[in-house]
């Protein structure tokens, strides 16, 4: 059985600048994979290339064995990849409920919208309380929940998150990561981009380390936690 997501030698960039080169990684069904690295390593670029938001200049990207690297973002969402982007990218002057409902775009997701909404509210009761409020008026943590909820409304096979911990208080990060673990346990495959390496390694099954646009290291989380290089560069000890 092919991996759910497979990147093979992917290259992408901005203008003349090559931001990632030769990036290869695999995410199997049911896994929670972390993609870690420092500022500017190319983590966001990788997710944007997968989502079709940035053209893939070389290599190939496959979802469930089928190539997706020439598809438009809407088609990639329709095939089951939902993206919680850097900076959340909510619709600030629309209500929380509208933001969530907008996440359900495919016929299938629309048909199941009420049920999915109930499960998102079960996961994030705060969103249920705030559903009539404008998304722009939410706190940072609530906005992150809203962005995750919106992605879940698409009923994705693969959920990609770009630094969901950014700018949030530690307790809020804990609660969000607990929810990610639960989403994954309930069957959604997760690709998590994080700079908070300790937290990410605490959560994932396996991880890839991105350095200067290349995969520098990969392995199961225990091996990375014990790795001297990782300890020095990312865990500060």
């Amino acid at each position: 059985m092919p991996a759910l997501l497979r990147l093979d030698g992917v290259e992408a960039g901005y203008g003349d600048m090559v931001a990632i080169r030769g990036v290869s990684l695999e995410v199997a069904r049911g896994e929670l994979i972390a993609l870690i690295g420092s500022n500017g390593a190319g983590k966001t670029t990788t997710l944007r290339a997968i989502a079709g938001l940035l053209p893939c200049r070389g290599g190939r990207i496959e979802l469930d064995g089928a190539r997706i690297d020439r598809l438009r973002p809407a088609e990639i969402v329709a095939r089951g990849i939902a993206h919680v982007p850097e900076g959340r990218q909510l619709f600030p002057s629309m209500t929380v409920l509208e933001n969530l409902e907008l996440g359900a775009r495919t016929t299938e997701a629309r048909r199941l919208r009420t049920g999915t909404l109930a499960s998102v509210f079960a996961l994030f009761p705060r969103l249920a309380e705030r559903q009539r409020q404008l998304a722009g008026s939410l706190s940072g943590g609530e906005q992150q929940m809203c962005a995750i909820g919106r992605a879940l409304m698409a009923r994705p096979r693969l959920l990609m998150l770009d630094e969901p911990s950014l700018g949030l208080a530690p307790v809020v990060v804990t609660s969000i990561f607990d929810n990610l673990a639960r989403i994954n346990r309930e069957g959604t495959t997760v690709l998590l981009v994080e700079q908070n390496v300790l937290r990410a390694l605490g959560l994932c099954h396996r991880a890839y380390v991105l350095e200067n646009g290349r995969i520098a290291l990969t392995g199961p989380r225990d091996r990375l936690l014990a790795d001297e290089g990782v300890k020095k560069a990312y865990l500060g000890r």
């Binding site: 973002p73 809407a74 619709f91 409902e101 907008l102």
Partner: peptide, 23 residues
Amino acid sequence: TDLGRTIRAAADNAYGALVIGAD
């Protein structure tokens, strides 16, 4: 309507609309 909401969403945040898979 769904289409009307999507129009408002794209006006509010065009990149966000692309991210959720709006055409």
